[in-house]
């Protein structure tokens, strides 16, 4: 095996086979993948959920994770917030000619670690190599199949006025970690990307409170985007309480320095839950017993006022709109 990726590694010949046999399978191998057929034959019971997502993050490695870890967590979490337990993943790699094989190995090891944490197997995949300059190192696509958890009925239409809004922990860690590095800010080692599989947390939540109306993971666009989508889809209003929103002081510092708001920062290991008010305490208790939900809080309520809008009660008692984010996150000086 060479030290760098070459176009021939994606050409389907002997080099491709060696990449599979010497790099990919030793890390990701399992009985289904090892059959090495064109398609994986899977055992599932009952209803399944199916999702896909592509990962193009730069830098590829960052405190708390890598593109490999994100590629597993993102897809597992999309299934989890649909009420499904992820079982099988596909993994498609688009590699840039000249990539160090050592980097690919690091990424694949992160895929394996995250997959083990989530209890999923990579059962099929694909590798393409593009010319130098045609992509930024590694792009990954994963698709996931999950089995619906018993009794889960999770959908925006279930959201009703009077319900309460819960977040599973500190917001903004992932985006703050990534953008801080880009702009010369140094964070203490305790602040890392929150990338984590949430299927275990969701399982515990549904076991304690099957009445959960809706779940979603606030990734790109942050909690502001997720809440606006859900307010719009459910035709209700969301009123947040600014003082209840959990944000680490270091993340607040990054926001102050670069002109961001925590509600607009992406998360990779958090979820937002909508639950009948009388079940809030039971749900919080179940969440706080799980490592991914230790800092879970109630942050707001669903109302019939201003349907489709997200508003926030400020520390002084004023109310302002929390709008949908527009465009990408760039630091401002104004």
């Amino acid at each position: 095996m060479t030290d760098t990726i070459q176009l021939a590694h994606g050409a389907g010949g002997r080099m491709s086979a060696r990449l599979m046999d010497e790099v990919v399978r030793p890390i990701l191998g399992n009985p289904v993948l090892d059959r090495m057929h064109d398609g994986a034959v899977l055992d599932t019971g009952g209803k399944i959920a199916f999702t896909t997502d592509s990962y193009v993050v730069a830098p590829r490695f960052f405190p708390g994770g890598s593109i490999g870890r994100l590629a597993v967590c993102g897809t597992v979490n999309d299934l989890a917030v649909s009420g499904a337990e992820a079982k099988y993943l596909s993994l498609a790699l688009i590699l840039e000619e000249g990539l160090a094989v050592g980097e690919l190995v690091r990424v694949l090891k992160d895929v394996r670690t995250a997959a083990d944490e989530a209890g999923v197997s990579v059962v099929t995949g694909d590798t393409k190599v593009v010319g130098h300059g045609s992509c930024d190192g590694i792009y990954i696509n994963t698709a996931g199949i999950g089995e619906m958890m018993a009794g889960a009925d999770i959908a925006p239409r279930n959201i009703r006025p009077g319900m309460e809004v819960i977040v599973s922990g500190f917001l903004g860690d992932h985006a703050a970690t990534i953008t801080a590095a880009r702009h010369g800010l140094k964070l203490p080692e305790t602040i890392q990307s929150d990338a984590a599989p949430l299927n275990g947390l969701v399982r515990e939540m549904l076991r304690a409170v099957p009445e959960i109306a809706c779940l979603r993971d606030p990734t790109r666009g942050g909690a502001a985007a997720t809440l606006n989508e859900l307010a719009d889809q459910s035709g209700t209003g969301v009123l947040l309480d600014e003082e209840a929103i959990p944000v680490r002081p270091e993340v607040e510092s990054v926001c102050e320095l670069l002109g961001f708001e925590p509600l607009y920062l992406a998360n990779e290991g958090k979820l937002i839950a909508f639950v009948p008010a009388e079940k809030t305490e039971a749900l919080l208790e179940a969440m706080r017993a799980h490592p991914c939900g230790k800092e879970a809080r109630r942050v707001g309520v669903v109302t019939d006022k201003a349907p489709g809008q997200v508003a926030m009660k400020t520390g002084l008692g004023g109310i302002r709109v929390v709008d949908m984010p527009t465009g990408s996150l760039v630091p401002r000086i104004c």
Binding site: T314, L316, G317, G318, I319, R320
Partner: peptide
């Protein structure tokens, strides 16, 4: 920055 702070705090309403 004043304009934005005024809005973020919801001061106009108060």
């Amino acid at each position: 920055t004043h304009t934005v702070s005024i809005f973020r705090a919801g001061l106009r309403q108060l």
